[in-house]
């Protein structure tokens, strides 16, 4: 049995999902030969420490750790002080400066800890630096959950399609935009109505600009370009147009002519824009679904679709990354 001490940094929607998923999958992981022990959970109010593993039932009901924290340690301090070999970083994303996640990841990687994250900001701002830091310290940086949530994309290209050359990836990488466009098409309602409906359902944030202006999708395009296409690009290299200018009339007109209008991110073209997608195309998915078409030389086009966000769904992608770190290191040899 391989014993792995895990620290979780960030206790928002995804953080809750991670605690839940690790707790639910404990027995399955043990069967695989992995004993993942969540020795600490940290947020902006403090840290819950438990050498034998944090009791999920005691903290899952808490929105923050304010009332249950056993230590006042926060952020980088907690990462350096706590004895763990893997850090799950799920703090809120900031695509401009990457903080606080960037500092957390630097602290973890430079002290020889693997990092698994769903936080796009640090990767958009500083991918090559973080990648080098991981290599220099002989640890891994995994970020499947940053693009397309639970939809397998990065690991699919890096492992399953490893013998292929990938000429491009196009897809729907933001469930909020896809939901809004879907509702506008279905009901013929204007953008503002569809947006408020999405906000009421918790699909869109109170400040939706990050999603609807295409910023989130562009961040994902940058991550895919840097990680899968070995490009060295920044957010400002992406040509971004959001969905705020799309009208129900345009959607209806396009539909009559056999097209849906979707916000499509394109790598390596580095564009994010509303695009006509033929109705019936496998990437023309509806609702909050994400999708991606991967163009390969040997396998033709591979299309994937799945939920792009959500607490437990994102945690599932994180869990996959955690397991893959130990599988990559030949889990057989660990016994």
């Amino acid at each position: 049995m391989r014993d792995v001490k895990v620290s979780l940094v960030g206790y928002g929607i995804v953080g809750h999902g991670v605690v839940d998923a690790l707790s639910r999958k404990k027995a399955m992981l043990r069967d695989m030969g992995l004993n993942l022990r969540l020795v600490s959970v940290t947020d902006h109010t403090g840290t819950v420490l438990a050498e034998d593993g944090v009791d999920a039932s005691k903290i899952l009901g808490e929105r923050t750790l304010e009332n249950v924290a056993t230590s006042g340690m926060k952020g980088k301090e907690a990462i350096s002080a706590i004895d763990s070999e893997l850090v799950i970083e799920v703090t809120p994303t900031n695509i401009v400066h990457g903080q606080p996640g960037l500092g957390h990841m630097e602290a973890a990687l430079s002290s020889g800890k693997h990092v698994v994250t769903s936080n796009k900001g640090p990767l958009v701002v500083s991918y090559s630096h973080l990648k080098k830091l991981a290599e220099d310290n002989g640890v891994m940086l995994k970020f499947e959950a940053t693009v397309g949530g639970t939809m397998p994309l990065i690991s699919l290209v890096e492992r399953t399609l490893v013998g292929n050359c990938i000429s491009g990836i196009q897809g729907i990488f933001n469930g909020t935009c896809n939901y809004i466009l879907t509702r506008m098409t279905e009901e013929g309602i204007p953008y503002t109505h569809a947006l408020s409906e999405a906000q009421d359902l918790g699909i869109a944030e109170a400040d939706p600009s990050y999603d609807v202006e295409g910023v989130d999708t562009a961040g994902k395009v940058v991550i895919l370009a840097n990680s899968l296409f070995n490009m060295d690009v920044k957010y400002s290299d992406v040509d971004v147009t959001g969905i705020t200018g799309v009208t129900p009339e345009a959607l209806a007109l396009a539909q009559r002519k056999g097209y849906a209008i979707k916000l499509i991110g394109d790598v390596p073209a580095l564009t994010v824009r509303p695009t006509l997608v033929p109705l019936g195309s496998p990437i023309a998915v509806s609702g909050t679904l994400n999708s991606a078409a991967i163009y390969t030389d040997l396998s033709g086009t591979i299309t994937v679709t799945g939920l792009g966000a959500g607490s437990i769904e994102t945690a599932s992608a994180i869990l996959t990354d955690v397991i893959s770190i130990y599988r990559t290191k030949k889990i057989d040899a660990i016994f």
Partner: peptide
């Protein structure tokens, strides 16, 4: 004007 172009049909 917002110009909405078709997706480039690489293989879809």
């Amino acid at each position: 004007l917002l110009v909405i172009e078709p997706i480039e049909m690489e293989a879809i």
